[in-house]
Nucleic acid binder design. Structure first.
Lengths: 239, 239
DNA sequence: AAGTGGTCTAGACCACGTA
DNA sequence: ACGTGGTCTAGACCACTTC
């Protein structure tokens, strides 16, 4: 039996909405009609529609139907940082990554507390500056537990570390917590970034957990004030 | 027939996890066991567990079971601003709201663009300063479409506007988009807040939509740099 | 009354983890 | 082999909207 019918329906419709093929306001076929069209049950269709709903692609109104929302007003991505990854993905913005450091060293007291490990545990430390349109704007400081990530080369750091972790190491990332705050900039910030006159810097602390709830990565992403933007889309939960 | 069994299960377990009655790491009963215990079907139980999963209360591992996550490490709320509402809710932090202005006036060009309405349309404007531990730290500027919110008194503004909108006016809030950025502070900020030496201010723009996808409220929440913090919990979506 | 989405049922088969 | 969660089915009844 083919599986993940609901993901297939979700993907097809999210693509059509993304591409503009389905204009905002368009009414989707009813759940029963979709079930028939995909030769599946209504509950399976509902799973797909609920995904689209949760991510802001459509709105569902009882008694009326499901309607395409205006994603263009939402900018992108629906939730997350408008930062290096996204900026460099968008058309024609020249950007590059400067790997400043890739070392294996003992965690130390501060980091040991962040990662909930012993101070002596060796930890991979990767420091990268992100240059966008000729300006070094973001400083990424990544720390990985070395018992989980045995090797990290400069080459890997220059590319996508996440791809390496998921496809090569087979790690299953489950969830992450972000903490955003504004803090005075450090000497390191001033040395590695083009900070202009700004005395403060936006710090995004990221705690990444594996499926087995092990916290294996801690990241500090330090953004120049004027280039920082964060988007959050939230459905209101009724209880 | 009793309805919303899944919400009942969700509420019971989220409460137990919140209160610490269910310690982190605890294994929940299996889905079949829960279905039997609540005299319902497995799919209904799964609906409840998926809610708990999405909100970071539990982790689900195929073949093993569902496990309580450590919420205390997560601070609170799971996603959102650590700001006035939350701060004032926590024990013993003295705080109050100063209503600076409650007027009905034409939208004007800037606001007309934000709310997607005509410039002449009257709009309720509510300006409130939030004082925490004797310092005015947050400036909330709320704008409501007057065709949807007919009346807004100073008394309502001093309390919870959302409660008024939902219970008294029966408005159904569906979703909201937040945009966070850092900007130079204005004269108004300096006049109404205790800004200290800070030249910049964290601006949280909030766009609130009703169930029928009408954008009816635009809010600017302006936070003093050093008192701003935002938390985001995100499950990694696998596609 | 007809059509829509919201909830629920009582099964089924599969993939994964543990023993 | 067994228990676990992940997906799916083919129905059912309900609440809401529209006609």
């Amino acid at each position: 039996m083919r599986e993940n019918i609901y993901l297939q329906i979700y993907t097809e419709y999210s693509n059509r909405i993304h591409s503009g093929q389905l204009a905002p306001g368009t009414k989707l076929p009813s759940e029963s009609e979709l079930a028939e069209a995909y030769k599946t049950s209504r509950e399976t269709v509902r799973k797909a529609l609920n995904l689209l709903f949760r991510e802001g692609y459509i709105n569902k109104i009882k008694g009326k139907g499901s309607f395409v929302l205006d994603m263009t007003r939402m900018d992108f991505p629906v939730t997350g940082l408008i930062s290096f990854q996204e900026m460099s993905g968008t058309l024609g913005v020249p950007s590059r990554t400067l790997v400043e450091e890739t070392v294996l060293e003992p965690a130390g007291s501060l980091l040991a507390r962040q990662l909930h490990i012993a101070e002596e545990t060796p930890v991979w430390k990767v420091i990268r500056a992100r240059e966008i349109e000729g300006e070094r704007i973001i400083l990424d400081k990544d720390y990985f537990r070395s018992d989980i990530v045995p090797l990290l080369s400069k080459e890997i750091a220059a590319g996508s570390i996440y791809e390496y972790l998921e496809t090569d190491l087979g790690l299953k990332i489950s969830y992450a917590k972000k903490l955003i705050s504004v803090e005075p900039s450090t000497g390191e910030d001033q040395r590695l970034l083009d900070l202009k006159q700004y005395q403060h810097i936006v710090v995004v602390r990221n705690y990444v957990y594996l499926e087995n709830t092990v916290l294996f990565q801690y990241t500090e992403s330090r953004h120049r004030l004027d280039k920082f933007q964060f988007v959050d889309f939230a459905r209101r939960v009724r209880r």
